[in-house]
Design a protein around this nucleic acid. Structure first.
Lengths: 222, 222
DNA sequence: CAATCATTTTTGGTATACCAAATTCAAAAA
DNA sequence: TTTTTGAATTTGGTATACCAAAAATGATTG
């Protein structure tokens, strides 16, 4: 049996539907209907909706149906700004706090990506990439950073995925990740910062471009 | 009538009791008992408990009563580390993004603190101090930063309050705040960073000291 | 007396019933 | 035809009832 509670399962299901686009932004989430659809009562559905609201995926409105959030470009951009700052901070701390075995694990991930970059499913590779970055956050040995990083990654999942699909090239991912790991192994904070800045430098712009294109496409459809 | 929902009211009440020490760490929060005490049903009490869990004030345990969290010194320290990083980032962004009128408002707060520092209730002054710092976060014009900053301030309320009581001196607060505002007005990022570092430099150590003393005192009592 | 197992009680999780606010829509009046 | 009003419906908020798991209690046995 799963360790996951029922509300968490429901939240996961809804989250999936939202991120994959099955529930587009603006869709109302009615407690009764959605609960009935999944064969559960309103109580756990309610709690699931609160979880997603906390994650920023749905918006609660007083005395109204919650709706799927439509993050503005500014909101996404703000989140990216914090994500980048967190990764920089993580890396600085990781230079000091990460254990050798953690760094070795990171190297293993790197090798895996290197070997499978072209053959693997892009979505799987994207997940591995997210794992690499989150591992950096964990290696800061600061649980608050790791938690926040996780939250931001989740919120930005869709935007990052779309940006990554567009800008998928081996050099960017493998070589730049390698530079980060090298700096980390050398415990060289300055080099690590340079490496992560090179890696994340265009993330904000890329995501903005993708979102802008998407917004434009949506206008044309109408 | 209040705009606040019932669960939020309950959460606020419980939060107060926890932060003020009426509900010491380790206390179990039983849905039925607490709901009955406040004359509400379990449903909104449940939701209130979830809100506090999200804030880190209570810990949910599967199939067990939630308990008031007892943050370890490491946890607090991690939070302080992130808070400081956020304030630095805020200030850098505020140098670029803050409007002149926002900076003027900050100056007004500064003057208020200057005039009333000795006479006002320490707790009130502490709130004003928190307001000053949060205003910096808002002036970054990055909503994610402002939100995170608010969350961390709340979680650290008790620890910061106790540290501030101990280290209450005019120089530290007024002059250092003044330096921050001056740098901000000059849009001088480097100066701003120096000023905020001078101001927050000892926060982590102060809080650690207070917590260590408190832990020791608790041991003696036993 | 100690240990263990069955039973009772407590407690969180879930379902359902009820309520009040908000929305919708139709009928009537201008 | 348009506007207004009020009744019916929808929907989230709250209370309550029920269930299952866990803890506490106590009796029985070694």
């Amino acid at each position: 049996m799963a360790e996951e509670t029922l509300p968490e399962q429901i939240a996961r299901q809804l989250r999936r539907d939202i991120l994959r686009g099955k529930l587009p932004p603006g869709t109302t989430i009615k407690e009764r209907d959605n609960a009935a659809e999944l064969g559960v009562s309103r109580t756990p559905m309610r709690e699931a909706i609160r979880i997603l609201a906390q994650e920023g995926l749905v918006i609660l409105r007083p005395a109204r149906s919650p709706i799927v959030a439509q993050p503005s470009i500014k909101e996404i951009s703000d989140q990216v700004e914090v994500l980048i700052a967190l990764e920089k901070l993580s890396l600085e701390l990781a230079c000091k706090n990460a254990s050798d075995s953690e760094i070795n694990d990171l190297t293993a991930t790197l090798d895996y990506m290197d070997k499978n970059f072209e053959s693997a499913d892009p979505l799987d590779m994207f997940e591995v990439d997210m794992g690499f970055h989150h591992a950096l956050a964990v290696m800061s040995h600061n649980d608050v950073i790791a938690e926040l990083h996780q939250t931001l990654l989740e919120r930005l999942w869709r935007a990052r995925y779309m940006a990554a699909r567009r800008r998928r090239n081996r050099e960017r991912v493998i070589v730049q990740h390698g530079a980060i790991v090298d700096a980390l192994r050398a415990r060289d904070r300055a080099a690590a910062l340079i490496a992560i800045e090179a890696h994340l430098g265009h993330l904000d712009r890329d995501i903005r471009n993708v979102l802008a294109q998407e917004a434009e496409a949506a206008l044309v459809t109408k």
